[in-house]
Every structure is written in C-alpha cells, then in structure tokens.
Design a protein around this nucleic acid. Structure first.
Length: 591
RNA sequence: GGUCCGGUAGCUCAGCUGGAUAGAGCAUCAGCCUUCUAAGCUGAGGGUCAUUGGUUCGAAUCCAAUCCGGAUCACCA
C-alpha cells in the first residue's frame, strides 16, 4: 500500500475517533509537502473547517497529535502552517520499505488480474514507408501495452495493415507505367521506399494530366475525375475486387516488397505484434452485422438500397454503413473487425491507438456498437494522439518535409555514436558492443522524446532538440543508470545493517520518489499515458544525481550509511530500468 | 456553420479530481572534475497561466462568454 493510502486511512481513522463521526478520504486532500516546509506529506484542512466548526489550526493540532499517538511507527512529527498540516513520515518506515524492495526488480508491478486487453497500433498503409507520425504511434502502442502488463493485464498487441484500396492501386499503376520492370533488388532500394517512390510518381503524373486537361478547357473537377491515370487506377481496383489474376499477382508482389521493408523498420525500432490483421481479409466483415442492425431497426435502408444510421440525436450526423451496391465502407469493416477481435480473444478491453483526426470516426464506431447492443461496445477505447509537427509547420509529402522513420533512426544512432566517441568512455568495447550501445542510446533518445509529451496533445518535433542528450532526455536517464551500475559492479551489496540514525534530506527525498513508482504505474495505466512514466523516471534520475554529487556512496561516512546508500542506488537502478522498459527503452550497463 | 481538442517563461513541455511564493528541460549568465562515469551538479535572470466575467476562504485548475490555432463533419481509408 502506498504511503498516501496509509496516510489517508490514518487520517480517516483518527478523525472518526476524534470527532465521533464518519469521514472518507474525500473529505480532505493530501499533497506532497512543498520543499520549503518541513514534512513529507501535507493534509489540507480547509475542507474540514465547515463541518467541524473549528479553526484549521485547532483541527490540525488535534489531528496531528492523534496521528502520532495512533500510528507512532508511521509518523514522527507535524507542524501546521496557515491551514496546512505537514506530517513527517518516520525514517523507520522508509528504511523498512527500502530493505524489503531494493533488490526487487518487479517493484511496482501488479500480479496478473485475469483481464485481457488488445492494443491495436501502428496500422500502416502499404503504399509508402513509415514516417515520424508512425513512430509516435508505434512507441505509444508499445508503451501502453507494457504499462498495462505491469498493471496485471494480459495484453495482445495487434496491427491492422491497410493493404487494399485505391491508394494501393495508385502505386501499382505507376509501377506498371514507369518502372520498366525495376524491383527493390534491381535498384538496391528498401522495399517500402521503393513502392513509396511510385506512389509519388503517380501523384506527379496525375497532377500533370489534370493540368493538361484543364489547359484544354476542362473544369478542375472534371479533370480530376477524367485523368487517364485515375481512370486506370479505378479500373484496377475493380479488377482487384474481381480477383483478376495478374492484378492480384502484382498486388502480392508489391505488398511483399513493402512488408520486407517494414520488417526491417519494425525490427530496428523494436516493435512487434501478436496478431496482424490484413484489411484485404477483413474488408468484407461486418456486412452480416449490418443485416442484424437492419432487423433491429438500428439501421435503415434508403430507396436506392444504401444503408444508414441516424446519429443526429447524439449530436452526430447520418452515417452510411453500406453502399447502394452492397459494398462496405470504412466503418462497416471496423465493426466487423471489432467483432472478430472479440470473438477470437474474448477481450475485456479494446484499445485503438489512432491519430486524433479520427476522433469522429471512432466515436461513431463506438456509438454504433452500443446501439447494436454488442457486448464489447463499452470497452472500445480510442487512444487518440495528436499530430507530430515540425517547427516549420505540418509535414507535407508534397514539400518533401516528411521525416522518414528509417532516416531518423539512422540519424539518432549516428548522433549517439558521435557523442559516445567524443566522450571516449567505452574504448574497450568491441564492435558489436559499440553497435548495441549506439542503438540503445539513439533509440532511447528518440523514444523518450516522442513519449515525454502527453499523447493527446499535438507535439512539435524539433530536430535540434531531439538529438540533444542532456536534460529531460532518454540518455540522461540511461546515464544515471550506467553510473549506478558502475558503482554496484565495484561494491558488494551484502544484505546487512542498512539501518541508519537519520535519513539525510537528499536520502529521504530519493526514498520518497522511489516510493511513488507503483502509483506512477497505476496512474499511467488509468490514463493510458506513457508521458507520466517519462516524467517520473526523469524526476527519479534527477533526484538520484543530486544525492550522488552531494554524498559519496562507496565511501560513505559509516558502514551503515554505505549500506543504506548502496541499497538506495540499487533500488533506483531497478526502478529506472523498469520504468524505461515501460517506455520500450533499454538501459546500458556502461555508456 | 456544428462538434471536439488545444493556448502556461524566448523555445519545448509539466502542473488541471480547486490549496502554500506557478515548475522542469533547452537557450542565456555565473560557479563546480586530484576522490563512486561532468551525457552530471549548484545558482541567477526570465510569467498579465490567451482575454473578460462568475463560483469560493482560496482558481493556471471549475463554469460562461470572447479571441487565436488545429482536427473533423466523404457512397476515401
């Protein structure tokens, strides 16, 4: 149980005894005491003033004395300043907490709770390579999965690959027109980049044709509709749906190139999935659900045969769920896929990591599921994240400002190499060890940079800041870990006399932060917010570094102090490692 | 226009279930390596928490209005 919970219970209990009434933890507030005052945690008394008809100071005195009398092992002293009751937690409490947990690499994690969650993330299109936005998505999805696991959930990571549709046909047509049979192998190009080039070529040609048609007097709308390359693409989509062998053959081949490329990228950033869905397999799902919805009068059919749902009563619009020709739309297959996920895994919760431009769509999806009375409807959760923008504005492929994932990874690893070489601390590493280290640091910096911001908010990716390895960054935390490990390699951490007379302020401060790790994991899971972990881990590293510079660990004043600080160091290293692991970031033993 | 999200230091962000003098990092300036890794530490300057009004003992935090920015409202996915 956390110290805050202990304190809440103690206050409730003491208030009840003192004032012969029932209280709950909602009747008062507990905060961490500000550093300028004496004490560890603070009970805010104002809310009690009215019901108890006493001044804050008098309540504080009675409560403070009661707390110490009833819980002498927990609290040692108190003071009251302007209506705030500052309570000091006993060193005995902190030291016994330390003793129980300093060697526990699972500190803060919950036992399995028997619940299953699916986290869907990444969800790439197979017509172009992954970019910076995908990286935010991937890191978020991975981290949220780890955070949920730490809270006792069984997690299934899934990915839906957008492998069909008009956009895929665009790359295919362009390849037919312009490639002369070139392949990734013949051009020595990574498969996803190779295909992406043809997607770009399509758009260039398309624009050219539109301009030609307009020069001949066509309206813009007509030109867009009648450009030969667009007509060819639409024909190809129909051929694909009809299963025309040579189209299917080309589609499979080009998708194969892209998958090979994605595999490399996923491997390099450490992403993987337990289950991959392909839209080419799922796009017909959901039609039977539409029929069931018609039977239940949740949906209605217009004269032309198209099927709709009226969501105007819920503040949304009328939405199409089936075209007049009977083919399904985006939302139809999403309902179908949601059903399939539930049928296959009997999941208790389904989390979708999708950008906030789809807030409306996900709202509609959930609402439709609810209206259909589907059992998983209430457990659909859209983890909506904001766009990643550049200091110059949005990324635009047209202007060539899209930050490619592979390029960025490479750049980060290169930067890590430069920094490491300049510092020259690991000259004895062999080539493999160095590669692994550069990768750990480079990826650590990148993941931390993208995860440290609240997912809901759009964020600015500043290339210069992102390769900074100082301050609020991944390498800062990694460095702190490596420093501790360096000490622990040289010092034996035998399980003895860690008792100390009194914790020094910096020792206590570190202990207080360490104690908050379980709460940090819990609230990160409740909010599905990895940035809470990033902030926590940074605070912990910073607090440790202060202690480290101020007090010697290996050469402490006494043997007891030495044991205490070694245990604090060990626990800090464990928590840093666990916390970073929740972000999908590795920590190096040396750097 | 409707709906949703955001606006906090020069920049990037915390803080938002109301609490004490609004916090970090970067950048700027001044210090600290003969001792456990200086990718570190200590300190300084830097704020009309978009604006206005309301609720209250107390508002960056809650409510309302306004201004600014973004997303979305496709028989695209």
């Amino acid at each position: 149980m956390s110290i805050v919970k202990h304190l809440q219970e103690a206050v409730v209990d003491t208030l009840s005894k003192l004032y012969n009434n029932t209280f709950t933890e909602k009747d008062f507030q507990i905060n961490q005491t500000k550093t300028e005052f004496e004490g560890d945690y603070t009970v805010v008394l104002f809310s009690l003033v009215k019901s108890l008809k006493q001044s804050p100071d008098s309540i504080g005195n009675e409560l403070g004395e009661g707390l110490i009398k009833n819980h002498p092992h927990l609290f040692t002293s108190f003071n009251i300043i302007k209506g705030f009751l500052n309570v000091t937690i006993s060193d005995v409490y902190w030291i016994s907490l330390l003793k129980r947990n300093y060697h526990d690499i699972c500190f803060g994690k919950q036992a399995m709770n028997g619940k299953k969650v699916m986290v869907e993330y990444s969800s790439p299109n197979t017509n172009k390579p992954l970019h910076l936005g995908h990286l935010r998505n991937n890191f978020l999805g991975w981290s949220v999965a780890e955070i949920l696991k730490a809270n006792g959930y069984e997690v299934i990571k899934s990915c839906i690959v957008n492998d069909r549709g008009i956009h895929i046909c665009k790359s295919m047509i362009a390849w037919q027109l312009f490639a002369n049979g070139a392949t990734p192998v013949s051009t020595n190009t990574k498969g996803d980049h190779f295909v992406g080039e043809y997607y770009v070529k399509f758009n260039d040609e398309y624009k050219k044709q539109i301009k030609e048609l307009m020069d001949q007097g066509a309206s813009e709308a007509d030109a867009e509709k009648n450009a030969p390359i667009m007509l060819q693409t639409q024909q190809m989509l129909q051929d694909w749906e009809a299963g025309k062998p040579e189209v299917i053959q080309l589609w499979k081949e080009m998708n194969g190139w892209v998958y090979a490329g994605f595999d490399v990228t996923y491997k390099s950033i450490g992403s993987d999935f337990d289950k991959t869905y392909y839209e080419s397999n799922t796009y017909l799902l959901g039609k039977d659900i539409v029929q069931a919805g018609l039977d239940k009068n949740v949906f209605y059919k217009k004269e032309d045969g198209s099927v709709w749902i009226d969501l105007t009563a819920d503040g949304l619009d009328e939405k199409l769920v089936l075209r007049k020709d009977g083919t399904s739309v985006y939302i139809t297959q999403d309902i179908g896929l949601a059903q399939q996920k539930y049928d296959q895994y009997k999941i208790d919760q389904s989390i979708y990591v999708i950008g906030d431009e789809q807030n409306y769509h996900m709202k509609v999806l959930k609402l439709i599921a609810q209206k259909l009375g589907l059992p998983y409807a209430d457990h659909i959760y859209h983890l909506s994240y904001g766009m990643v923008e550049l200091p110059t504005g949005k990324m635009k492929s047209r202007e060539g400002t899209v930050v490619d994932a592979d390029d960025l990874v490479k750049e980060m690893i290169d930067t890590a190499r430069h920094h490491t070489e300049a510092l020259g601390k690991v000259k004895d590493f062999d080539a493999d060890e160095l590669d692994a280290l550069y990768r750990t640091i480079g990826l650590g910096a990148m993941k931390f940079y993208l995860l440290r911001v609240d997912p809901k908010k759009k964020m600015i990716f500043n290339p210069e800041d992102s390769i900074d390895f100082h301050g609020f960054t991944g390498p800062f935390v990694q460095y702190t870990y490596a420093r501790i490990k360096s000490i622990l390699r040289k010092q034996s951490l035998n399980n003895q006399e860690a008792v100390s007379d009194a914790l020094l302020p910096l020792e206590k401060e570190l202990m207080v932060v360490l104690e908050q790790f379980p709460s940090a994991i819990e609230s990160a899971a409740a909010e599905l917010n990895p940035s809470a972990i990033a902030n926590y881990v940074f605070l912990l590293a910073k607090t440790f570094n202060s202690l480290y510079t101020e007090h010697s660990i290996a050469n402490a004043e006494t043997a007891e102090k030495r044991a205490l600080r070694l245990q604090l160091s060990s626990m800090t290293a464990n928590v840093l490692e666990s916390g970073m692991q929740l972000l999908g970031i590795n920590v190096p033993e040396r750097m």
